[in-house]
């Protein structure tokens, strides 16, 4: 197994990186770090894909001229272009998601003054309790 891991070293590294990213996304309490973790995970997956497209000794998927005005279009010359296409799409997706998540994070910070969702939850529940007790008081006053 270890030999095969050495053979597939790009994929192994990508998998470890995506594991670390996933840990960050799940475990970190700080939202900014969560989002960095998300980015690490995404790029790791893209590394995995790009490594899967690579073929030993072939050129990048841009057609080369054959010297007499034609194009070399034998499939044995170029690496697999599909992963590159998928990753290009994926990068756009992850930058959009990052921007959106950061915007929400800033908004959360505006409201709660914290970057930790749990602390925000705590603040919210406490405030709700205060609000409810206030409402109860007000209702009692009205009744009285």
């Amino acid at each position: 197994m270890l030999e095969k891991l050495f053979l597939n070293h790009y994929e192994a590294a990508a998998v470890i990186l995506s594991g670390i990213g996933l840990t960050n996304l799940l475990l970190q309490r700080n939202l900014i770090k969560k989002i960095i973790g998300l980015n690490i995970m995404d790029t790791a997956v893209y590394l995995f894909l790009a490594a899967k497209g690579y073929v030993e000794g072939r050129a990048a998927p841009i057609l080369l001229e054959n010297g007499s005005g034609g194009w070399l279009n034998s499939a044995n010359l170029y690496v697999n272009p599909v992963p590159a296409g998928l990753v290009l799409t994926g990068i756009v997706v992850s930058v959009s998601v990052t921007a959106f998540a950061l915007a929400l994070t800033l908004k959360l910070y505006e409201y709660y003054g914290t970057l930790n969702i749990d602390e925000a939850l705590m603040k919210m529940t406490q405030e709700q309790q205060e609000l409810e007790s206030k409402i109860d008081d007000a209702e009692e006053e009205v009744l009285a």
Binding site: Y10, N39, T43, Y46, A50, A51, G53, Y54, R58, A59, A60, P61, I62, V79, P83, A84, V87, L88, I91, V92, V95
Partner: peptide, 15 residues
């Protein structure tokens, strides 16, 4: 290194 220059440009500009 993995022969994907498109990705490299995009990642450098975006990531």
């Amino acid at each position: 290194l993995l022969r994907s220059p498109d990705l490299a440009i995009t990642e450098a500009a975006v990531g």
